[in-house]
Design a protein around this nucleic acid. Structure first.
Lengths: 144, 144
DNA sequence: CTCCATGCAAAATATTTGCAATTCA
DNA sequence: TGAATTGCAAATATTTTGCATGGAG
């Protein structure tokens, strides 16, 4: 239940970025903020539509775009597809995802900064971004 | 020019996995083995078709699928899309990719195994896969 | 009241599948 | 020869765009 977070800061953030607060945006924000699994646009749509009748899938796509742009959510890259999203309210974090049930947890990777700088030097690259994700089986799914 | 590798081992590998050696497969293998940028199915198709007339995009998809399955190539996950492939003939490697020119280089991450195990313990996960990629600007592009 | 945002339909992409013809082993 | 492979066409799936209407600020 680590992802159940207050949605007010999200809405404030959207406003501060010049976006209007609408019923549909609130619905999408709530869905993503309150799940512990990465959701793709269609899944968000199906869940959000229960709360907000007449919601369109297109709007979900556009809302996700803005949420990602403002850094509130992050795209999750999995072996099976790369169109799912998770909250990223605490800044950039690294993910560990269960391949069976989709449950995701965050982990710190402080040690990594040193590695990145070392690689940057060795290859003459200037590094702007990094992605690190682990995939496996969570505690619960190991029992089954 | 680090990626220009002999394609014979690739073909042998395919055979050993029970796949037949065909002209189209050779073409696809050569294209990917000889590029230093990640290529998506369409790009592979366009280049391979120059060598093998009548090649179909569908076959490229199916060949890429088999090459990934046998571990000869790996999917590259970039901010702009996740359908490009690079050789992975030396087993799983980590990537550093230039966001300007697409040039990719591999780097070792031996230090990371320890981190992964630590995270696995803390979260009770059994880790099966991981991917780590760095994005930035390569030496040449920094000059421009 | 003025734009931004929405939903619909349709377009544009991307990927997969059915199937007859072909090719490798 | 027999089974795997291919290319085509068509089916799906996914994402984007144009545009008239509606709603936030």
């Amino acid at each position: 239940m680590i992802f159940i977070m207050d949605t007010k800061p999200w809405l404030t953030c959207l406003q501060q970025n010049g976006y209007r607060l609408t019923a549909t945006r609130k619905a999408v924000v709530e869905i993503i903020a309150q799940t512990e699994n990465a959701l793709n646009p269609l899944e968000v749509y199906e869940q959000a539509r229960r709360r907000t009748r007449g919601l369109g899938l297109v709007t979900v796509y556009r809302t996700l775009e803005k949420l990602e742009e403002t850094g509130l959510i992050q795209r999750v890259h999995q072996p099976g597809g790369c169109n799912a999203y998770l909250p990223s309210a605490h800044g950039h974090q690294h993910l560990i995802i269960c391949q069976q049930c989709g449950h995701a947890e965050y982990f710190e990777g402080d040690d990594m900064q040193g590695l990145f700088e070392q690689v940057a030097n060795q290859h003459g690259f200037h590094i702007r971004e990094h992605w690190l994700q682990l995939f496996g089986t969570c505690r619960d799914c190991q029992k089954n």
